[in-house]
Design a protein around this nucleic acid. Sequence first.
DNA 1: GCAACCTTGACACGATCGTGATAAGGTTTG
DNA 2: CAAACCTTATCACGATCGTGTCAAGGTTGC
Lengths: 118, 118
Amino acid sequence: MAGLTINEAAVTTGWSPRMLRYVESAGLIEPQRSAAGYRLYGPEELQRLRTLRELLEGHGIGLGDVGFALRLRRDTDLRDAVEAWFEAEVTRPADIPDSAWLRWEQEKHQRLLAALSD
Amino acid sequence: MAGLTINEAAVTTGWSPRMLRYVESAGLIEPQRSAAGYRLYGPEELQRLRTLRELLEGHGIGLGDVGFALRLRRDTDLRDAVEAWFEAEVTRPADIPDSAWLRWEQEKHQRLLAALSD
DNA sequence: GCAACCTTGACACGATCGTGATAAGGTTTG
DNA sequence: CAAACCTTATCACGATCGTGTCAAGGTTGC
């Protein structure tokens, strides 16, 4: 067979077989499969499993975090949306000064309160 | 006061006051404070709270995810480490072919098993 | 052909997340 | 000065995460 089976991979990487399946379900490491469906871990997968462990422990992050980072780099829409949110400036007519804008918000608030107390 | 208080901000953004504090604890929106320590939400914070809601709902992600994205863009070490992991190629002496490498791994496995069964 | 592997699926359990509620105390305002 | 706000801290509770374990069944190898 052209690769280690899941138990062998577990021994050489330090992950449990259960976790190897879990890591796979997170889309992080997806080994080849034999004709019968057995997972076959090649050198690259084994190496990445080892460094994944270091990555998580070294920075106190979780599998879900790396999974999200993966989504970020695959889903352009998502990446752009997140990026846009971080960089968002106030997009509001420049001719309304903060003070007026706040006053309007506060009045809206009071209208809401008034409506509630009916 | 130069901004809305937490309950006013809650009404105009749709978040609960509890969640506004939670969002702050995630480092996502940190409003100014009055002298007495009251949170004061300005136009920018209010706008970002509204778009944050859209971001989460529009992409099925969570506050923790955005929090992690924030860590990614602030912590260069982390970003580089994650990036490096995604791009990692096998870093193993090129003169050892896969077949030999795998054989070595499998033998190590057998040595381990032998050691265990002592 | 049988022992030792592999598969998926499910149940379980502690830890953390997302969220509300409540308490004890300080601040603002009419 | 009292009502209505604000603060932090805590308890609670369902949902999800990380992980183990077990069951039912297919595959491999001596």
